[in-house]
Amino acid sequence: MREISLDEVTRIVKESLIKINYELDNSLVTMLKKAKDKEKSELSKSILDDILTNQELARQGNSPLCQDTGVAVVFAEIGQDVYYNGPLDEAINRGVRQAYDEGYLRKSVVKHPFDRQNTQDNTPAILHTKVIPGDKLILKIASKGAGSENMSKVVMLTPNAGIEGVKKLVLDTVFDAGGRPCPPIIVGIGIGGNFEKSALIAKEAILRDLNDESSDPIIRNLERELYDEINRLGVGPMGVGGETTCLAVKINTYPMHIASLPVAINIQCHSARHIEVTL
């Protein structure tokens, strides 16, 4: 058994959330620069230029990248040989509380669907746990804004819909969302599992490294085809038309019932704020 200090967990969660809200991932910045060079109209170029200047300013530390600093989403992969001297979820929420306070981030969580009272500290985090072999703790930490999350969906297709059915659903979803999720977007797709599993693997898909591709040849091909077809929709930066609607398409799959083909589409805006840390 290895003991991981809960204070260390709190510190990592806090520092990670602050960092991702001020510093955009470098490979994302490179992709945005390439996207800007590809645009033909002054308008879409100028929007991508704003996004690039914005991340330079945010990096100086005076203002977060976006005013919607989101809900904290944490995937904790917990080694089965790890011991904690107390509740892990509380240590994580303590880190969230400290980050949103000390990092001057917006508290955007309300307690109840109808009375809408703010919890005042951006907790609780949305916490997903998984037990893994070994004595490590892997934390995937994200700040997820509502603009793109609100354009996401789960649809229960039937198996005969096939690849074409999935493609049509994804293209329609991205087109109908238009400028609202702050394109250029990253599209996370979960295919398989059941109703809730598809959503979970779609969320994990948007946390994948921006440059990786699926190791499954059929899925890799689908990722590439959807990337091209989404960009041919012409939605463009902030929906004003243009060459780049999505920066990446990531698909995760899971085995499913013989009668089901669940598909979840989780949309991530260009302000993709997440990080992975191993303790």
Binding site: I51, T53, L65
Partner: peptide, 11 residues
């Protein structure tokens, strides 16, 4: 519209 996700620039 203003550029979404450009809160540091707009501020």
């Amino acid at each position: 519209i203003a550029t979404g996700g450009a809160g540091a620039l707009l501020s």
